[in-house]
């Protein structure tokens, strides 16, 4: 599944930004807390606009938040 290949550093970035809660991040990015929780756990791959909003909230580039691992390359 795609969600397993998308790693993120949201939890670390939240704590690095004044121990921001999931609810605060959710409010700033315009989603529910459940969605932040699902993204952090790698259960949900966010849309590109939401990924950009999350990165902008932390003031970093999108690559600093999300990392994509191409498993097909590793397998072959």
């Amino acid at each position: 599944m795609v969600t397993n290949e998308l790693k993120n550093r949201i939890r670390r970035l939240r704590f690095e930004n004044g121990e921001m809660t999931q609810q605060q991040l959710a409010d700033k990015t315009g989603v529910t807390r459940q969605t932040i929780l699902a993204i952090e756990a790698g259960k949900y791959a966010p849309s590109l606009p939401l990924a950009f909003r999350i990165a902008q909230t932390f003031g970093v580039s999108i690559e600093a938040v999300f990392q994509y691992e191409d498993k097909s390359d590793k397998d072959s």
Binding site: D27, T32, Q34, T35, A38, S47, L50
Partner: peptide, 12 residues
């Protein structure tokens, strides 16, 4: 309806 700023998003 759920309490909170946002109650429905792209995942829902």
């Amino acid at each position: 309806k759920d309490k909170g700023k946002v109650t429905f998003d792209e995942r829902d």
